[in-house]
């Protein structure tokens, strides 16, 4: 099961087949390009993955690896002039990339929803919380605004906000950070979407609140049976929620595996390095001099000037000549475990 071109449909079809049919979301060879003054920049370059109903997929990678852009592209929310230049996104049988704007708009907020990183900037500062949370119902369920406000109170109670009848009349700046993110989550799940994109939903929150929000998301998923694509640069957070993890580097998928398998046997040098950078409590013996936190040397390659080989080669401790000559294809390193590396054991 090896192919020289990771984006080739045959290899991908096999990959999808390996994880099982009847997927809720199937992303195949997705490519997102931003035209820049120094040439086109492929922020997402031939990415393929799938999510089954009720499953949580974690997408990890450092800033700028294309993990957020991929989610925005799937929802048709790419900021211009960015555009999907290749690939397809199958959701419940329809190709989201080729769907007309009106049909996509009817899916957004109803079957597909998204939570953003910073709840304060994702909420309109001059619209009461109740109106914002109920808005999805007004748009998709044709609920009257007064009724939607009552529904909003019920939703706020569901996500653990106390005194929701008072909260619906308040404005975002009157809520704490954790409450705001709860309100954003209530907004996203109002229409019981089949798939929720969560783009670093805990990054802007302090650590104690982070844990509560993660618990809430997990609880809502169990309740509603929705699937989730959880985007984060925080491996610890991803390991807590995800069933399967995709590791992205410079616009490409370098490794994909079930969560436990990935953390136990990371096959790609980048994944190994990422896991090593997670600080571990108690690793340093008491009284010993402080050790530096592990980091990955070098910088992410400029995707416009990258050569033909593996994009991680410049920072990779195991890189050899062949790594710089050709792009390593995704190949199977274990059951449902895929890795794009020549050096990885299979």
């Amino acid at each position: 099961m090896t192919s020289l071109d990771p984006a080739a449909p045959t290899a991908e079809d096999e990959a999808v087949g390996a994880t099982g049919a009847g997927m809720l979301l199937e992303v195949q060879g997705l490519e997102v390009t931003f035209p820049t003054t120094r040439g086109p920049l492929k922020a997402v370059d031939g990415v393929s993955y799938s999510i089954a109903a009720g499953q949580t997929l974690g997408v990890v990678g450092e800033s700028g690896c294309g993990k957020s852009v991929a989610a925005l592209a799937i929802l048709g929310l790419l900021p211009p002039p960015g555009a999907v230049t290749a690939g397809q996104v199958l959701f419940a049988g329809a190709d989201l990339v080729r769907l007309d704007r009106g049909a996509l708009r009817r899916l957004r907020g109803d079957r597909l929803a998204m939570i953003f990183q910073d709840p304060l900037s994702a909420l309109n500062p001059v619209v009461p919380i109740g109106d914002q949370v109920g808005e999805t119902l007004v748009i998709h369920r044709q609920v009257a605004p007064s009724l939607a406000r009552k529904e909003a109170a019920a939703l706020l109670r569901r996500v653990g906000i106390s005194d929701p009848d008072r909260r619906i009349t308040e404005y975002p700046h009157q809520l704490s950070g954790g409450m705001r993110q709860r309100a954003v989550i209530a907004m996203a799940v109002a229409c019981r979407p089949a798939l929720l994109f969560a783009d670093e939903p805990t990054t802007a929150l302090d650590v104690t609140v982070q844990a509560q929000i993660l618990d809430l998301l997990d609880e809502l998923r169990a309740d509603t049976g929705m699937a989730m694509q959880f985007i984060s640069h925080n491996l610890a957070v991803v390991s807590r929620l995800a069933d399967e993890v995709v590791v992205m580097y410079a616009g490409r998928i370098v490794e994909r595996a079930p969560t436990n398998e990935l953390f136990r046997h990371p096959a790609h040098p980048y994944t190994q390095a990422l896991i090593d950078t997670v600080p571990v409590k108690g690793r340093r013996p008491l009284g010993s001099p402080p050790t530096k936190l592990a980091s990955i040397p070098g910088q992410v390659a400029d995707m416009r000037t990258a050569g033909p080989g593996c994009r991680f080669a410049a920072r990779c401790p195991q890189a050899a000549y062949d790594c710089r000559a050709a792009e390593p294809p995704l190949r199977e390193a274990g059951k449902n475990h895929w890795v794009a590396c020549f050096r990885a054991a299979t």
């Binding site: 929802l75 929310l77 708009r105 009817r106 899916l107 957004r108 907020g109 109803d110 929803a113 998204m114 953003f116 910073d118 900037s121 994702a122 909420l123 309109n124 500062p125 808005e135 999805t136 748009i139 998709h140 954003v184 907004m187």
Partner: peptide
């Protein structure tokens, strides 16, 4: 971002 969020709500 709240405009993007609103568009994301449909």
């Amino acid at each position: 971002e709240f405009v993007l969020a609103a568009i994301g709500q449909g």
